[in-house]
Amino acid sequence: MITFHLTAHSNLPPYLQIVEQVRQALLAGVLRPGDRLPTVKEVVGSLAINPNTVLKAYRDLEREGLVEGRQGVGTFVTRRPDGPSPSDQAALRRALATWVAKAQRAGLADGDIESMVRSVLVSTADEGVA
């Protein structure tokens, strides 16, 4: 069993923080297939958050196939998440490093780069939504 934490300073909305914490726990082996996630009521009671936030997080995890809700019993872990393959991750990272170096040469400070990345993420997300 794991407990969740929410921070106001995270850039992620509360439900994604829960999703991330489950994924991290799975990757780290803290949670293993067959384990039961805390019930909605338990999470809600300890975090004082809206039950729908937890439901939404669990639904997301379910859609990814990481967990499975069983009526009246609880939500159970089914498998470990598969991230991008290590080689893909390395390639993406190399590409980003090249771009960052270019941005620095153009005179952008670290903060500028971060805010530019965030802005691009937000606007692509909006396009996707709309």
Partner: peptide
Amino acid sequence: RRGFLSTLSEAVAD
């Protein structure tokens, strides 16, 4: 406040 909201959220979850 946190305690109050926990109770409230649990009731909603119920």
